[in-house]
Design a protein around this nucleic acid. Structure first.
Length: 103
DNA sequence: CCATTGACTTAAG
DNA sequence: CCTTAAGCCAATG
């Protein structure tokens, strides 16, 4: 199991945080590495990096997309409301793998 | 090998 | 959820 696998498992219209993924992978303190790993995920096509935001629901990585607007646009298309580069009603759309994917 | 940097998190105010 | 400070881990210079 790696970062990309978890990201791929994120349901449509839901988002999660780097820390949550890191935690699920057994490295709760390696949230930055998750983000770093995502940076390398540009080569992969089926990795919905736009569904991964920081713990505040802020679209921190939007600028790393080919087009920054694409991230929030995709999320909006999935039913996630975005305002000021942040996910509205975050606690509702938040999808924690360590809970939802719980063994 | 040491220093800097970063798609981050947590704690305290 | 806003701000500031400190911690973390890996890649890069």
């Amino acid at each position: 199991m790696n970062v990309y696998d978890v990201v791929r498992l994120i349901p449509k219209g839901r988002v999660t945080s780097y820390g949550a993924i890191a935690k699920y992978l057994g490295a709760p303190r390696s949230s930055r590495m998750v983000g770093w790993a995502m940076n390398a995920s540009h080569n992969l096509t089926d990795v919905p990096a736009h569904r991964v935001v920081n713990r505040n629901g802020l679209l921190t990585g939007k600028m790393h997309f080919s087009d920054p607007n694409e991230m929030e646009d995709r999320l909006k298309r999935e039913g996630v409301e975005i305002k000021d580069d942040k996910v509205l009603d975050f606690n509702r759309v938040y999808w924690d793998p360590s809970i939802e994917l719980k063994v």
